[in-house]
Amino acid sequence: MQPQARPLAPTYQERRWELPPGTVVHHGSAEDAVGTLRGLTITALTGAGVSTDSGIPDYRSPDSPPRAPMTYQQFVADEAFRRHYWARNHVGWQRVHHTEPNAGHRALVALEGRGILHGVITQNVDLLHEDAGSRHVIDLHGRYDRVICLQCGRVTSRTRLAERLDALNPGFVESVLAEGATVTDIETAPDADAVIEQTSHFVPAVCEFCGGMLKPEIVYFGENVPRERVQRAYAMVDDADALLVAGTSLTVMSGLRFVRHAAKAGKPVVIVNRGATRGDPLATLKVDAGTTATLSTLAERL
């Protein structure tokens, strides 16, 4: 029997942010964003919407399917949930591993190369900013390519874990693929959680050093971002004249706090996202458009 999803806290159930009636939002175009940001240094805060054009679906865009990400509490408390997660991740991480940066990622690299962009704070775990060539990146929610033991604290590579899981579950990946399909055909969430159902026979691995519980080095819903990482992100916002937010609904406080911080400091905040975001009332300018095209325009015009 497959584990049934337990109810999540309301914050995590919300797939899209809806602004209260009467909220004032200053909407504009990509050209307006160029005008707002011209002559300023920028820090970028990015979310899953930046990676959708690389083939990784997001959680909350208007066209995204319903998703209920696993919480930290579920992962550590329920062996069936961990088995289910690792089975899906074992397939999904390979798809993320084969994705490539898109023009939006490369636009941020170009801005950084010209000294306009101080760096990127990303809520994504896909490493596409680094793959594109960004040099100053804070992976706010961790990275998909590393695994940590919750008992001894050792960090190992996801590639090493894949070898161990293949040995424990020979033929598993092939068994969940339709005839002629590859891992790139499997629907996968931003945290490399593949949409497959038959996982009850999957054998997860334990830490090869102490036998402890393994977890992706990713900040789950219900888990706190390490304080040192948050402080570095605040400092990156402080070092720039403006904050550019791209591809996130800012539904959770993890990213919203940096928008609030910038707005409180009187810095221009430009938000680029399809659909409403929780930070829209704080934005100097909101561009309701795709991130790839808008970031490319900024790179060309700034």
Rank of each mutant, 00 (worst) to 15 (best):
E223I: 05
A5Y: 02
G92T: 00
H118V: 03
T159S: 07
R257P: 04
T199E: 08
A80R: 15
D191R: 11
G35A: 13
H141I: 07
R257I: 11
K264S: 14
A178Y: 11
A9H: 13
F209Q: 12
M253A: 14
V259E: 08
G49Y: 02
R95Y: 05
G55T: 14
R38V: 10
A293P: 04
A276K: 08
A181G: 04
R301P: 03
S134Y: 04
R16A: 15
D241E: 11
M253R: 13
G113L: 06
Y59D: 04
A235I: 09
I186D: 11
A240L: 09
R16E: 12
A265W: 01
Y234A: 02
A235L: 10
D145C: 05
L150C: 05
P190F: 10
L37F: 02
F202P: 06
N169H: 04
Y59T: 06
S200N: 07
V259T: 07
S51T: 10
R229W: 01
W93F: 06
E18M: 10
W17T: 11
L256E: 01
V270S: 02
L111T: 02
W93E: 03
R160T: 15
A289H: 08
S29M: 02
A33P: 03
V287S: 06
V259R: 01
L140E: 11
K264G: 03
T248H: 03
F202D: 00
A299T: 01
V125W: 12
L108C: 00
Q74A: 15
V96N: 00
A192Y: 08
I121D: 07
P204E: 05
V176K: 13
R260A: 12
R232N: 08
I42P: 00
T156I: 15
A110Y: 02
H26I: 02
V245P: 11
F75K: 10
R15T: 09
L302R: 03
D239Q: 11
E14G: 01
I218R: 00
H90V: 07
I148V: 15
A167P: 03
W93Q: 12
L40A: 10
P69I: 14
A240H: 01
P62Q: 11
T284V: 04
E14W: 05
R160Q: 14
A48Y: 11
P62W: 07
L150R: 15
E174K: 05
P65E: 01
